[in-house]
Design a protein around this nucleic acid. Structure first.
Length: 1058
RNA sequence: GGGCCAAUAGCUCAGCCAGGUAUGAGCGCUCGGCUGAUAACCGGGAGGCCCUCGGUUCAAAUCCGAGUUGGCCCA
């Protein structure tokens, strides 16, 4: 880019985006930046892979923006950053999308269509989505290695999964087992707990009598799943609860029922018994071991009838609710399963993976379980075991993909038994640093402590095949199983010819491979891994390990990962588990856990409910950089974000200020052919404000760096924007304007140019990680050929002690406070800034303030347009002042106890003529109606503006600074200058209206209607001429305009000279 | 139902950990000013049951308890 080239008058995000993207492409900016840091210290960042279905939403956008910003920051600090993006491409969500695209209803349709073709369709779908996501991420300036993302569906990556699994196996952490799992009968697979969504459904609610075998009466249990009754194995009671034997009468017949004492009346009412009699009460412990007959023994010939079945046991999950006895079927319910496991009971489950009863279910065989509910209820009724039947609306789990009601089944699944290494997991957690720290201590540790073994198997197609080969009559001994870890290993052990360089590890290719060793042939189990397993190995999968070990040896474990808080139990956890199971270590060092992106009103975003703010819309409305700035201005540590259109607009305005600030000096620098390379800042004759701005830059750099390094880029941005808006725009530019405008070359002007150029270049460098697009444009315009090809190759600015002047910063802070108060006082006096004040009196409250004012008198005079600055030291009083007092409650509270508030009010309301404690006590006593004893520590005296003088208090660094008084007395000279400045302003306006270049010379004709004023103005003709680049002359043609200035008519004529 | 987090001006948020008058900040609103950055910039003003209820304390936005609403996670 050409240095100091003219730029558009306004910040236009669209234009900036377009030209920057073009520039990046032309110059290979990304590749060059990476190359530039090739020899830097390694920084291993790992991208948490987004799932490849759908476009980037605001949450993903926030996440990627944060990642991009931190990667850029780290690069600027010299690191060689790993920035490979990742995509999570396997799993049921994509399968169901493809199924619905192809019009499939269930697994059989897939088998008919052909597994290979179906998997190809899934691959194609995932690839398409991946491309869309990449384009989304690029659209807001993210720089990652888009040309070679890691894909969980790639052969290299699946191998990384296999390897990790094999490592876990070698540590003895893989086993097959029956578990009660949540099954989607449509998808015919187990689904993870977090994939279960809860909806309100209406289910049967039945009370079933289980007839006691060895004594009279029945046990009454309640259930909402009649279809689990065939699998009833035992009845659970609470041994510490009291139960009642009740003789109940209905329609002349009596029977004995056992229920918890506390619910007798409720149950009997449900059963519509007319009378009842409590025969006896007994503790639950006495019921233990009682036996009963299966209520569907006739219908289900092969009902659970084995050692220990049909008995009463204690269980912790029993509550005195409904009946106080719980129908338990370990083949279905999860708690039932666990208790049955403890009791050593067999697991009986007469239901297939599609939710259809098998032959063991007798009369119900072939029926879908939920469809059998009515028959079962009818049969129970016919058998005389139905006490009551009604319906019940409750939350019930459904498959997140297809909304089918889930069922609980005990089936054979593969597990990684992370519970065996729980202590190691908890130890390893301490090796990671979490931001915010509490998330690790509270949320994560709680979760890990309570987490069960991992069911890693899914009975599906589009996933990494589980690399387990089993002999035909396998007995469950893992030593007899073959677990393959790499392609090479597979090629070596397979019976078939396998080319490791070429093989696709997906089903069905691997399904056909067998292994024969020592005369035994092994076949692969048909399952695939749960998709969560894929991403759990990202820390080595992203490095193509084990296929390639160089990067792994050098980089692993990850230096940094960052995701939202839902990943606590997701990716943060799965990586810890897999890292520990496979390598005995936590695979990441730093974790930045951010929040969720919510709607402006605080609701969660939801694509399906059409409650979203789309990143594309925001970019279109306000631009990519403003959106990024907004996202990066939010606290990234745990807290949810509310998206705000208004705040995004504000960011655009702030960038417009950046644009204006940078644009301001360009015409002058161009005109004077300023060459930043030829001027050494240290050799310039810097003025105080220049030194001040350079010092402020150091402070800004230091504060920003500290914020970045503690993962608070939002605070860094605050500091930067404040520096830009407050220091550069609102102060430095205002002060430096006259120096820039001066016609003649001067050391002062050069110093201003050099300062400005240096500060702007550094400032835009500091902006680079936040707003990479506009930063690039500005940087290019400031540096031209002399800088790096891209701002993103710049080093992160370092704090430079040599330019740091804290005293000067404090001085200017005081100057600005005084200036602001002075402007206020002027306004009260109705005196414009253009009219000089004869004097300004600063009555300081503190020595430091007085010293600062004293040192900066010249600057203050200029800023306040005052002829004189008078200073009243802190130790002095100004005769005409009155004083008030302010209470210090930290002293007053303990001293006065309950009366403190009252004393405070009195103190605050009185005034005295002197800063005198006795006088104050007297005044307070008067106000309060009684004497109080005050100490100097209790009060702070404050100046108050006396009548007749225009004064305004000011504060410095949160402390009272003093009062600024403006004397607005008019003299001839002041009037003369006032009018002259009014004229200058109007001439400047005319110059602009006439579209004159800033260095164009003019002829100026001034006619003042009032003779006295006309004479006064003549005194300032030189000033007017200089400021407007004018020669005073008669102007007959061209611009003529009459103005009313303070009631005096002034006519100006302006024309271009020559 | 359980765990974690949040609630302060119209909006977005500081302040809370280490209790002491909310001079709260920016934006917005409004009135005024400035004027070769000008769709920029500066000053004044209005605007608060600090989510609710209890407790601790001389004193609570801040600490504690219960609740409400929202977010995430787990049932």
């Amino acid at each position: 880019m050409e240095r100091f080239a003219p730029v558009s008058e306004q910040y236009d995000p669209d234009e900036v985006e377009e030209s920057t993207f073009e520039y990046w492409a032309e110059t290979d900016a990304y590749e060059r930046t990476r190359k530039h840091r090739r020899d830097g210290e390694d920084f291993f960042f790992v991208d948490g892979p987004p799932y490849t279905s759908g476009a980037a939403h605001m949450g993903t956008t926030w996440n990627k923006t944060l990642k991009d910003a931190y990667i850029r920051y780290k690069r600027m600090q010299g690191y060689n950053v790993t920035d490979r993006p990742g995509y999570d491409m396997h799993g049921l969500p994509i399968e169901t999308k493809v199924e619905s695209k192809l019009g499939f209803e269930n697994k059989k349709d897939i088998e008919e269509y052909g597994m290979e073709a179906f998997i190809d369709a899934c691959q194609e779908f995932a690839d398409e989505q991946l491309e869309g996501l990449q384009e989304d991420f690029k659209s807001f300036g993210v720089w990652m290695d888009w040309d070679s993302p890691y894909k969980t569906a790639s052969t290299e990556y699946m191998e990384a999964v296999w390897w990790g699994f094999q490592q876990a196996h070698e540590r003895g952490l893989v086993e097959r087992g029956k578990r009660s799992i949540t099954q989607c009968p449509r998808c015919e697979t187990a689904i993870a707990k977090n994939e279960v969504e809860y909806h309100q459904v209406e289910d049967p609610s039945i009370y079933v009598n289980f007839p006691l075998a060895e004594r009279e009466g029945s046990l009454v249990a309640w259930t909402t799943t009649p279809w689990t009754v065939p699998a009833n194995t035992f009845i659970a009671v609470d041994e510490d609860v009291t139960y009642a034997a009740v003789e109940a009468t209905k329609d002349g017949e009596t029977e004995v029922l056992y229920v918890a004492e506390g619910v007798v009346e409720d149950v009997l009412k449900k059963g519509r018994y007319q009378e009842y009699d409590v025969l006896e009460t007994l503790p639950g412990a006495e019921l233990l071991g009682w036996t009963y007959d299966h209520p569907l023994a006739d219908e289900v010939a092969e009902y659970p009838d084995f050692e220990g079945s049909g008995e009463v046991y204690h269980a912790d999950y029993v509550e005195v609710d409904r009946t106080g006895l719980v129908h338990s079927a370990p083949g279905h319910g999860q708690e039932d399963f666990e208790r049955g496991d403890e009791l050593g009971l067999d697991v009986y489950c007469p239901v297939g993976s599609d939710g259809v009863y098998d032959s063991r279910a007798g009369d119900y065989a072939g029926q879908f379980v939920r469809d059998a509910n009515d028959d079962i209820i009818a049969d129970l009724d016919a058998n005389g075991y139905l006490l009551a039947s009604e319906t019940y609306t409750h939350d019930y789990g459904q498959c997140w993909r297809c909304d089918t009601d889930i069922i609980f089944l005990a089936t054979d699944q593969w597990f990684i038994t992370v519970t065996d290494v729980k202590d190691e997991l908890l130890d390893n957690i301490d090796d990671s640093h979490w931001y915010p720290h509490e998330a690790r201590e509270d949320r994560f540790k709680n979760f890990v402590e309570e987490s069960p073994d991992w069911n890693v198997s899914r009975q599906r197609y589009w996933g990494t095949p589980i690399p387990i080969w089993l002999p035909e009559d396998w007995d469950g001994d893992m030593d007899e199983a073959v677990i393959v870890g790499t392609r090479e290993e597979l090629a070596e052990r397979a019976d078939q010819a396998v080319d490791p360089a070429d093989i696709d590890l997906h089903r069905p290719t691997v399904d056909d491979i067998t292994i024969t060793e020592d005369g035994t042939t092994y076949e692969r189990v048909p399952d695939v891994f749960d998709v969560w397993i894929d991403s759990s190995v990202a820390s080595w999968g992203t490095l193509d390990y084990p296929g390639n070990s160089e990067a792994f040896d050098r980089l692993w474990p990850a230096d940094l990962i960052m995701e939202a808080h839902d990943q606590t139990r997701g990716w943060f956890w799965s990586q810890l588990g897999m890292g520990t199971a496979a390598l005995g270590e936590v695979p990441y060092s730093d974790v930045l856990m951010h929040g969720y992106a919510n709607m402006p009103d605080g609701r969660g975003m939801s694509k399906s409910k059409n409650i979203t703010v789309e990143p594309g819309e925001v970019i279109e409305e306000y631009g990519a950089d403003p959106m990024r700035l907004f996202l990066l201005s939010r606290n990234p540590q745990g807290e949810d974000m509310r998206f705000s259109w208004d705040e995004t607009e504000n960011m655009q305005r702030d960038l417009n200020i950046l644009w204006n600030v940078f644009r301001f000096p360009l015409p002058y620098m161009r005109m004077d052919e300023f060459d930043p390379e030829a001027v050494e800042l240290a050799d310039c004759e810097l003025e105080a404000v220049d030194e001040w701005l350079l010092s402020r830059l150091q402070t800004t750099v230091e504060e920003m760096t500290a914020a970045w390094d503690s993962y608070r880029q939002d605070e860094a941005l605050d500091v930067l924007l404040e520096f830009l808006v407050e220091d550069v725009s609102r102060f430095y530019i205002q002060v430096v304007r006259e120096r820039m405008w001066a016609e003649a070359d001067s050391d002062s002007k050069t110093a201003a140019y050099a300062t400005f150029h240096h500060v702007l270049t550094k400032t835009v460098t500091l902006f680079a990680p936040f707003a990479p697009l506009v930063a690039e444009q500005i940087y290019g315009t400031l540096t031209g050929e002399s800088g790096h090809p891209t701002v993103h190759m710049e080093d992160w600015p370092e704090f430079d002690e040599a330019w740091y002047e804290p005293q000067l910063e404090a001085d200017i802070e005081t100057v600005r406070a005084v200036e602001e108060a002075g402007a206020n006082a002027r306004q009260q006096a109705g005196r414009k800034l253009r009219w000089p004040a004869t004097r300004v009196v600063v009555a300081a409250d503190a020595d430091g303030v007085a010293d600062s004012v004293d040192r900066q008198r010249a600057l203050l005079r200029e800023r306040l347009n005052a002829r004189e600055i008078e200073l009243v030291e802190a130790t002095e009083d100004w005769d005409e002042l009155a004083y008030g007092a302010r209470a210090d409650m930290s002293v007053l509270g303990p001293a006065f106890g309950g009366d403190a508030g009252e004393v405070m009010d009195a103190l605050n309301s009185v005034t005295v003529a002197r800063k005198d404690l006795d006088a104050l006590e007297a005044a307070v006593a008067e106000e309060l109606g009684r004497e109080v004893e005050l100490t100097p520590e209790m009060v702070e005296f404050v100046t108050e503006t006396p009548e007749g003088i225009e004064g305004t208090e000011f504060r410095v660094a949160g402390e009272s600074g003093g009062v600024v008084y403006v004397d607005t007395e008019l003299t001839d000279d002041i009037e003369a200058e006032g009018y002259a400045r009014e004229i200058i302003r109007r001439v400047q306006e005319a110059r602009k209206d006439l579209d004159l270049d800033i260095d164009a010379e003019i002829h100026l004709d001034i006619a003042v209607a009032d003779d006295r004023i006309a004479d006064l103005v003549v005194e300032y003709h030189d000033l007017v001429a200089e400021e407007t680049r004018a020669t005073l002359a008669d102007v007959d043609e061209g611009f003529h305009e009459a103005y009313d200035i303070e009631g005096v008519e002034v006519t100006l004529g302006v024309t271009r000279a020559n």
